[in-house]
């Protein structure tokens, strides 16, 4: 105990923690205010609004699962090569050869869990009417985050490069062929012609944009990999920052205003 006391008196400790232990009112406030992560919360909240039966903690769990998926995802990236030659073998190796062979499992099951927790979070927010003014725009941001979660999961689906991945993505991306005016088989696309030349064809339609090719192939794998690991998480992080900030500004976690 005495040793800890001396540690706390060092310049290093004091430079990191600028307040005392959170045991009194002042320091408990400071613990939240002076911490970049915790200050997304207000200092004080209504006692009833932190009860688990009202919030279900689903928003928090979704964010936590996002962090888990980021960490496990980074670890998986150390062993995975997004090419047609190596991808499948690397996934097998991740199970058979790599230490802590359950990393892919945590990533996959965590992703399933995140989709469910996002839905339940939306469900709770709806049932408590928490999208009403002034929180309307934050609901919109939430819907965008929900879509990004599904896109993250969908792009990740291709990466194992097994039969399930390839054909689920083939079938899924085939919908894009039917985009009105922008897919080769979409309604109205046949009207977009210059003389005999089709303006929208299999080599430049919406599905081509998605797959970077006419079929699910090497370019698709790389494209989905980049989307999955960098592009979508990047956008989602920005939207999450907006989402959390606005929760704070609009009166904190759930509760009547």
């Amino acid at each position: 105990m005495k040793k800890l006391f001396t540690v706390k008196n060092t310049q290093i400790w004091k430079s990191i923690f600028r307040h005392g232990p959170p045991e009194d009112r002042r320091n408990r406030s400071l613990a939240v205010l002076a911490n970049v992560f915790l200050h997304l919360h207000p200092v004080k909240v209504r006692s009833s609004s932190i009860r688990l039966r009202y919030t279900w903690c689903m928003g928090g769990l979704t964010f936590f699962l996002f962090l888990v998926l980021t960490v496990t995802g980074i670890l998986l990236m150390f062993y995975y090569r997004p090419t047609v030659e190596y991808a499948y073998g690397d996934i097998i190796d991740l199970r058979e050869q790599v230490p802590l062979g359950a990393m892919r499992e945590i990533h996959r099951w965590g992703a399933h869990a995140m989709v469910i927790s996002v839905w339940l979070h939306m469900f709770r927010v709806f049932m408590t009417g928490s999208y009403k003014p002034p929180r309307e725009f934050n609901w919109v941001v939430g819907v965008l985050l929900l879509v990004l979660t599904l896109l993250l999961s969908f792009t990740g689906y291709l990466l194992p490069w097994d039969q399930l991945a390839m054909w689920a993505v083939t079938v899924g991306s085939n919908m894009a062929r039917a985009t009105p005016l922008m897919g080769t088989e979409g309604p109205g696309t046949a009207l977009l012609v210059l003389g005999d030349v089709k303006l929208v064809h299999a080599g430049n339609d919406a599905r081509f944009f998605l797959l970077a090719g006419r079929f699910v192939g090497a370019a698709t794998l790389l494209r989905f990999y980049v989307l999955h690991c960098i592009a979508i998480p990047f956008v989602a992080s920005i939207l999450m920052a907006v989402h959390f900030w606005r929760i704070r500004k609009d009166g904190g976690i759930s509760g009547p205003l």
């Binding site: 081509f208 970077a212 006419r214 079929f215 090497a218 370019a219």
Partner: peptide, 9 residues
């Protein structure tokens, strides 16, 4: 930029 000019198909 997202529409490749050369396909490795």
């Amino acid at each position: 930029f997202m529409f490749p000019n050369v396909l490795f198909e």
